[in-house]
Design a protein around this nucleic acid. Sequence first.
DNA 1: ATAAACCTTGGAGTCGACTCCAAGGCAAGC
DNA 2: GCTTGCCTTGGAGTCGACTCCAAGGTTTAT
Lengths: 125, 125
Amino acid sequence: MKIKEVSTKFDIPADTLRYWEREGAIPPVSRDDAGYRDYDDEDLDWIVFAKCMREAGVSIEYLIEYITLFKQGDVTLQARKDLLREQLGTIAQRLHEIQHTYDLIADKVDNYEKRVEGYHGKLSR
Amino acid sequence: MKIKEVSTKFDIPADTLRYWEREGAIPPVSRDDAGYRDYDDEDLDWIVFAKCMREAGVSIEYLIEYITLFKQGDVTLQARKDLLREQLGTIAQRLHEIQHTYDLIADKVDNYEKRVEGYHGKLSR
DNA sequence: ATAAACCTTGGAGTCGACTCCAAGGCAAGC
DNA sequence: GCTTGCCTTGGAGTCGACTCCAAGGTTTAT
């Protein structure tokens, strides 16, 4: 799968895919004879992983750290687990914050609902 | 309440509080005789609102838009409601993305849990 | 009345994460 | 074999959101 297809499929700019790889936020991608990126299933899994993490607000730096450990093999299993667990905590917290904001705004919208009605009532009288 | 107290109370750098105000992401803050910011309850409410929104990933630009409408009074009630509702949608989406990532990582951690056990088992044999 | 600890503004600097070239190689259709 | 369209790299540029001065005013404690 060439870079443009991947870009379209996951809705991530090709430049960003290259950037992630350059930085080491995903492992090096397979290449064809011409030196073109040719993503296999494993590469795609990493893209999905990186995309999810980025959406959840995990920094590139964290991803790099994770990949660095990954490249060192099974010796780093524990370390990777710890890293992920730490992220899990951060994400849980973020989740609660956003949940909280969601409730707050939902409430505000409700209030506006009423006020807008009242306002129109006044105008039409 | 002076800026440093507010900064400590809400754990937001004073520079950021000034920045938000400069940009118009919150309305102008009350001042004392010396020209020092002296946050009243209403000002604090705006800080809380801005903080929540920022944590939920809402851009400064959106906040400015909201404040701009707010300053124009009741004529913009409907517009403000629409704006908030739009944000609500975006935040809901973000919430689901993060939830999804949370589940994914929780799963991954579980797997690591097992693999780490196996790894240790091998070593001690 | 002087030092320490606040505060002000305007403007410059930083940082993370892209995003956009330029210069050149490869590939498919006409 | 030439055009069109994709691909490569390295490096520069952008953008949002802070973050950090410098120069100067105020307040408080000693």
